[in-house]
Every structure is written in structure tokens, then in C-alpha cells.
Nucleic acid binder design. Structure first.
Lengths: 203, 203
DNA sequence: AATAAAAACAAGCAAGCGCTTGGTTGTCAA
DNA sequence: TTGACAACCAAGCGCTTGCTTGTTTTTATT
């Protein structure tokens, strides 16, 4: 009756149950978003690769935007759990930091899916309410783990920078590896993780 | 001979002369690309903020894509010149490195224009031929300056990483500052440059 | 076998997109 | 004054976009 592309005004819906069909669509969408970006990916692209018609997508997601939000929120939750798993039972903050760096690198460079890429690249395509929701998820667990490890290092006097600055420099450096790191060289992911860790710690 | 000639000859044309009208359009486009991204920016957006009608844009540029290419190529050339200016007359590789870091930070965080943002964010929107042309421009001067400085540091044994890896980690860390650094804090750009430089050098 | 819900199809709408066309205005040199 | 050309306007074309609607098929439960 008015404009298409209605944006839900109510609070951003929490992540509902992910049916197998939803999961397949999300996997396809994430790959396409990685290849071409959200804006250049059409709902027809997603439907075709999933093996259905474009209209059928909207039986599972109420909008294209919701597909992006669901993908980013899911990935954020998964990375939060990975971060917690990486540091539980590890007391030494240096070991924690090394584990987190390797964990983030693994998430970025895993072969079966490009969810972490999307999480880095598509913030501008996510409208503000959804973005705030994802950020809240991220700060709840993922960032808490990182800051704990970095502050632990700082307390021991072996961190080169202020923890907050170190976190930002690290985030940028690690995210950028997706554009240049290829695992077939002499440098492995654990090797790179060691090197990055050594860069930010006094030696 | 005419004063200004439209020079788009082959598929990827070299940068022709930039008339004042073109420059104004480019400045507007760069700001919009920074705000919303290339795909979400329409030619009507650019025209409206420039103060003309959308069709008139195509008197100056033959396509929207050419606007993006011109903006990125121009910025690349400008940054190449800034890099050369930053290191000429400087012999100490550490001083060179510090100067390059500060120069890149200044380019990213200058208030009058967001060209450097576009250069980081919009590679995926630039089609392959144009992207190759811009990359060639970049490697010709900008990257050559960086590698010379980093290799100089490595030769003196004070660089923590392999120069090539250091360059990539630095690029990621510096580019990411656009998302978190705000000049109003206690940290200034030269201060940040010093800190970053110290991180990558043995102390 | 009967029923209902879930999933997918078939078709297409309204809006917006990049870009083209044909004509009008402003500028300046000869 | 005139001719030439660049800059711009006015209108809209052809196509793609996200999404909707009404119907049919599949699946699960009884």
C-alpha cells in the first residue's frame, strides 16, 4: 500500500530456531555475500544456488536484510563460543592471547564457509538497529575474552601498548590477513599467530 | 586545439584532465561512497548533492563505474606522491617508517574528504580491469616507498617481522583505525604513529 | 486414508536503477 | 553578430530489484 522493502520498526528479533532449510539458505547467502557483497547479491542469486525460486525464500526469512542479520548474529555467537572455549582452563595471559589470535585466524581462514568475512565486510549493509544488536552480542563474550587476555598481559608489564589500542591494532591486522594470507606458503596459521603475538609483546 | 578534451579512449583509460566540474562531482561522490558505499549510492544521489540533474553526470563521466575508478586512481596517485614526499631527504629507515605511518594515518583521518576510505572499502565494486590498473599505480610508488623503509629497518636488524609480513600487518592495523580512532581523545595522530612504529620495531 | 501444516511454485507488481535522447542555455572567440 | 561547443535540463526507456499473492505439492501426524 505504500513502500516496498518494509523495515520492521519493532525491536530486533532475537535469533529464532534455525531449521535445516534456513541453514542451507544461510550458507549459500554467506558464500555469495563473500563473493560479491550484500548489495550485489540478489535474492534470485541466493534462491538459484539453493535450488528454489526466489519467492520461496520469503517463507523462511521475512526480508533479505533478515538473512544478513541472521548470518552475522549466528557467526557472532559462534565466535563468542570459540573464544570462550579457547581461553577456558588457560591461566597464562600470554597463552590466552596466543590462543585467541589463532582462533580468530582459524575462523577467518577456514575453508568451509566465509562467515567471518561477512562479519567484517558487511556492517555498512546492516541497518543500525540490527547492527546494534550484533555489536551487543559481540561485546558480551567475544570482546570480553580478548580484553581479559590483553589486560592480563598488561598487568604483567609485557604488552607493548595500552590494551584497548592493542586490541584495535590486532583486530585490523588480523582481519586484513584475509586479503593476503594463503596457507600454501611456508607460513602456517599457527606460525603466523606466533609471529603476530610476538609483535605485540615485549621481547 | 580545444581547451578541455574528453579523453576516454580504451577500456581502462588513463586519468584524463580533471575539470573543475569533474572535481566537484568526484568530491561529492567520494563523500557519498564513504557514507553509504558505492552500491547504495545512486547517480541521482550524486547529482542532487552536486546541484545538477542525474543525466548531466554522464556528460562528464561515461558511467558510474568510471566515477569510482577515477576517484580511486586519483587518490592512489595522490598518496603515492605523499609517500615519496614523506621519505625524500630522510635517510634513517626508522624515520622513514615513522613518516610513512604518520602520512597514511593523516590521509585516512583528514577532515576534508574521505578519499582514503573509499580506496580501502570499495575494491569489490571496482571491476577487475580497473582494479588492476589502480593496483599497478599503487605498486609503482606507494608500495615501493613502504618496502624500501621496511627493508631498511630489517637490514639493521630492528624489525620484528619479515618486511612483507610487517607491511601487511601494518596495512591492516592502520586501515582499521578509521573505525575507532577519534582525534578528540588524549591520543593524537602523531602519538598513535609513534606507538604503532614502536610496536613493530624491537625495543 | 484423512487432515493440516509447511514448503515450494508461478506469476507479476511497484519502485528504483543506470543510462540515453533530444532540445535549451550559457560562454567565448572570431 | 555569429557560430561552435560545452554544460545542463526534461523526459523517459528498458531493465532489475525486493517482495507479494494465490495456488499447488510435499511432509508429518493421526
Amino acid at each position: 500500500m505504500s513502500k516496498t522493502q518494509a523495515v520492521s520498526v519493532d525491536s530486533v528479533a532475537p535469533l529464532g530456531p534455525i531449521s535445516p532449510a534456513k541453514a542451507r539458505i544461510l550458507a549459500v547467502a554467506v558464500d555469495l555475500f563473500h563473493e560479491k557483497g550484500y548489495e550485489r547479491t540478489t535474492v534470485r542469486d541466493i534462491a538459484e544456488r539453493t535450488g528454489i525460486l526466489s519467492g520461496s525464500l520469503f517463507h523462511h526469512f521475512k526480508s533479505k536484510q533478515e538473512i544478513l542479520y541472521t548470518a552475522m548474529a549466528m557467526t557472532t555467537q559462534a565466535m563468542g563460543q570459540s573464544a570462550e572455549a579457547a581461553v577456558t582452563g588457560v591461566d597464562d595471559p600470554v597463552a590466552q592471547l596466543k590462543a585467541l589470535i589463532l582462533m580468530e585466524l582459524n575462523s577467518i581462514h577456514r575453508e568451509d564457509g566465509h562467515a567471518a568475512y561477512v562479519l567484517v565486510d558487511e556492517w555498512r549493509s546492516l541497518d543500525p538497529e540490527h547492527a546494534a544488536a550484533v555489536l551487543k552480542l559481540r561485546d558480551g563474550s567475544y570482546e570480553r575474552c580478548w580484553m581479559a587476555a590483553l589486560e592480563g598481559c598488561a598487568d604483567k608489564g609485557i604488552l607493548k601498548n595500552n590494551p584497548r589500542i592493542a586490541r584495535q591494532l590486532l583486530r585490523g591486522a588480523l582481519a586484513w590477513t584475509r586479503t593476503w594470507f594463503r596457507a600454501d606458503g611456508a607460513l602456517t596459521l599457527p606460525g603466523l599467530a606466533d609471529e603476530v603475538c610476538g609483535t605485540f609483546l615485549k621481547s
